[in-house]
Design a protein around this nucleic acid. Structure first.
Lengths: 212, 212
DNA sequence: CAAAACTATACGACCGGTCGTGCTTATTTA
DNA sequence: TAAATAAGCACGACCGGTCGTATAGTTTTG
């Protein structure tokens, strides 16, 4: 039953297709990505994709899930293993900033472009994106609340809003400014998140050293 | 020479087409908008559109310009007529927040969706968008600098970054949270911009009254 | 040798774009 | 004032191309 080599081949092709789909969808949009281009990139035939997903929409949903997996591996994962409280929050932000510099700024952000692409288009894809962002917001809010215990956040702070800001500001500012001045994007993302962290933690001794 | 009735008819049709194009492009994307759907919405034939614009790309560029005009009329205009300094900045923000509640939240934001749609797609449309955002950033930075003279902004503040944040945060936070919780979008946009303004102006007596 | 994975081919629908024609309307002419 | 002219505008039909999708056949693999 293992049938390891047999099933492994199909799973490998499926996985490679999803990885390529994330990259291509970031360039041309999740809906703008044609199956022909995806098949050409993979070096396979277009119709073969229908053996793995029954429709393009099914492939789009799988692409969103794959992007979530990549995001969690590269961003959330390192942050979760950092120390608790403010330092943990900062470790997460630092990982995200480096991720922006390495992936978002050169090639665009899959979630940002897809989010805005489907914002006014109800349907399964938009629903899936809503779930993803809701989970992400909950996770961010939890991280912020943990940091609050150590840093004495001002009483009138809206914690869910703060979590949203941390997320939206980093991506939006980085991508927006990329159109105007690519070099400024990294500084903006880093500075913006750092400012947010300072507001969150007035005691500078709690922050990592060597930050401008 | 007046030729009023002759030219006015064509100009009216052209103007109506651009208004509809902005609305439709906000829904399905600037590139996802088909000429057939635009023609159907207008109740005219598709080929008639080519009498006004020689190609779809020309119509897309005209659509961007039209959206800029609308934005300036509804947002920049009221703000420019407000008192100078912090109050003027707040008047601009207040107009933008109301605009979010009335237009962006129900139907999406043309600039946000189009910006991310074309972020990784070089070409004339992206270049036009870059010009628009560069002008917008310059305008915002000028407004912030005028407010600084009255409010004594902290010395280490990055003014261009602040201008970017004010813009990106409002749109991104509003649209992002719309997917998750429509009711929270207005509060988020208002609270986020208000927080920014408070950081900009530590003296509460300079701020408008009745703000929570 | 099955069975799974993949390819080749064809289809209907829709895309942006072109062309030739008729209608509307302002200007010119008598 | 009334007929004639001409220009702008809009229309329907149609083109080549590409889209997502279905079906039948071929190659690969344990």
């Amino acid at each position: 039953m293992t049938v390891d080599g047999r099933l492994a081949r199909g799973d490998r092709a499926r996985s490679a297709a999803l990885d390529a789909a994330v990259v291509l969808a970031t360039e041309v949009g999740l809906d703008g990505l044609s199956l022909a281009r995806l098949a050409d990139t993979l070096g396979v035939s277009k119709s073969g994709l229908f053996a793995h997903w029954r429709s393009k929409e099914a492939l789009q949903l799988a692409t969103v899930d794959r992007a979530v997996e990549q995001w969690q591996e590269r961003i959330v994962g390192p942050g979760l293993h950092a120390p608790a409280g403010v330092r943990r929050l900062w470790a997460l932000h630092q990982a995200r900033i480096d991720f922006y510099a390495a992936h978002v700024l050169p090639g665009g952000c899959f979630f940002a472009s897809t989010d805005f692409e489907y914002n006014a288009r109800p349907g399964p894809v938009r629903d899936r994106l809503a779930e993803v962002f809701a989970r992400w917001a909950t996770f961010l809010e939890r991280l912020v609340r943990e940091a609050v215990d150590a840093a004495e956040l001002p009483a009138d702070t809206d914690v869910p809003l703060l979590a949203y800001e941390i997320d939206a500001l980093g991506i939006a500012a980085a991508m927006r400014s990329r159109l105007v001045d690519p070099d400024a994007a990294y500084r903006h993302a880093r500075q913006g998140l750092l400012n947010r962290l300072r507001a969150l933690c007035p005691d500078p001794t709690l922050l990592p050293e060597g930050l401008s």
